[in-house]
Amino acid sequence: MYKILPRILVSALLFSLMVGCANTGTTNDETKDWSADKLFSEAKSQQGSRDYTKSTQYFERLEARYPYGKYAQQAQLEIAYNHYKDQEPALALASIERFMKQNPAHPSLDYAMYLKGLVNFNESQGFLSALSKQDMSERDPRAAKESFMAFRELIVRFPDSKYSRDAQLRMGYLLGAMANYELHVGRYYYKRGAYLAAANRGKALIDNYSNTKQVEGALALMYHAYNKLGMTDYRDDAKRVLLKNFPNSTALEQDILSDPYWWAPI
C-alpha cells in the first residue's frame, strides 16, 4: 500500500503539470478569440511589416479555423507569397500547387501562375549568374525552364491578365538566358575536345531558341566543331546558313573559346 500511493501521487502530479502546460499554451494564444476578419487583417499587417513568419502563422490559423470562409482560399495564396518573400521557394511552390489544385476556377488563378513563374525566375537567377569557371555541363537550368513554362501558361490561358505583360518580358529574358546557357555548354565541350557534343549543343540551341541572337554563335560553334571532326559538308552548311542569316557576321573570325559573359542574355 505504501509503495503504490507515491506512484499514484506522482502520476497525478504529472497529469496536473500536463494540463497546466496545455492551458498555459491556450491562454497565450492571442488569436483564440479573433474573428476571421481580424485574423486576416492582422496577417496582412504583419505581411506589410515584412514579418512573413508571423503573417504566415496568422494565415494558417485563419485557414484552419475558417476553412469555408471567404478568406480561406485567399489565405493559401498569401501564404505562398510570404514563403516567396521569405526566400523559401520550395514551400512557396508547394503552397501554389496546393492552391491551384484545390481552386482550378479561382478568379486569382492567373496570379497563382504568375507567382509560380516568379518563384522559379528568382531561383534561376542564382543558376544563371554562376561563374563560368564552374562545370556548367553538369548543372540543370530546370528553374529557368519551369519559370518560362509557368509564364507561358499564364499568357495562353489569361492573355488579358494584368500580369501577362510582365510575364512576356520575363519570358524574353529567359529565352536569351537559356540560349546563352546552351552556347556556353557547347563551348565547354569544344574546349575539351568533345567536338560532336559541341556541334549537337549548337544544333539544339538553334532548334529550341531559333529567335534569339545566340543563333549566330551557335552556327559559328557548329562550323568550328565540324571542321575539327573533318565533316566538311556539315561545316560548309553551317557557314552558309550563318552568312545567309547574318551577312555581316564576324563570328567565324572570333575566338570560339572566348566566352566571358555567357550568362548575360542581352
Rank of each mutant, 00 (worst) to 15 (best):
N103Y: 13
G126E: 13
Y181S: 01
E60Y: 11
R139T: 06
N180A: 06
T56W: 01
R201W: 10
E42M: 13
G217A: 06
F40S: 12
L17I: 14
Q73M: 10
D29N: 14
A105E: 10
T232W: 03
Y181F: 14
F59E: 07
Q125C: 03
G193I: 05
N103A: 08
K85P: 00
E42Y: 14
Y209S: 08
N208D: 14
I206M: 15
L257G: 07
F127R: 00
D259Q: 09
A218Y: 01
D207S: 07
D86F: 00
A218F: 04
K203N: 14
F246M: 01
K85H: 01
L5S: 10
A36Y: 12
M18L: 15
A64Q: 09
K203Q: 15
Y195A: 02
F127S: 00
K228I: 02
G193S: 05
T56C: 02
V241W: 00
S210T: 11
T26H: 13
A238M: 04
E146K: 07
E42W: 10
F158A: 08
Y84M: 11
P260L: 01
L174P: 00
A204Y: 09
L77V: 08
E138G: 15
Q47N: 12
K70Q: 15
L196A: 13
N180E: 09
K244P: 02
P6E: 11
A144V: 09
A22F: 12
A264W: 12
A179W: 00
S137H: 08
D29S: 07
R187P: 07
A80C: 10
L175C: 09
A199Q: 04
A238F: 04
M149L: 12
Y195S: 03
T250I: 08
L77S: 05
I8A: 13
R170N: 05
S132C: 01
L174T: 02
E216V: 02
A218H: 01
Q134T: 12
G20V: 07
Y52L: 03
A75Q: 09
L93W: 05
A94Q: 14
Y223L: 07
E63H: 09
L196N: 08
K213G: 00
Y114M: 07
S108F: 10
P107C: 08
F40A: 14
N122P: 03
R50M: 13
L5Q: 12
S49D: 14
N227Y: 11
R61P: 00
H224M: 09
Q57Y: 06
A150E: 07
L183G: 03
K239D: 05
H83A: 13
A197F: 02
G48T: 01
D51L: 05
Y163Q: 13
A238V: 01
N82E: 06
M113W: 15
H106C: 08
Y195R: 03
S49K: 13
L109V: 10
P107G: 07
R192C: 05
N200I: 06
R50T: 12
E153K: 05
Y234D: 15
A167N: 04
G69K: 14
T27G: 05
A218Q: 01
S11P: 02
I4A: 09
F151Q: 03
A144L: 06
A197K: 04
P67G: 11
F121L: 13
Q214D: 06
L221M: 09
R50Y: 12
I155Q: 06
D259P: 04
Q87A: 15
Y234W: 11
N28T: 06
P247L: 02
K213N: 02
E146M: 07
L131H: 15
A94L: 12
R65D: 12
S210P: 01
D33M: 08
A225T: 00
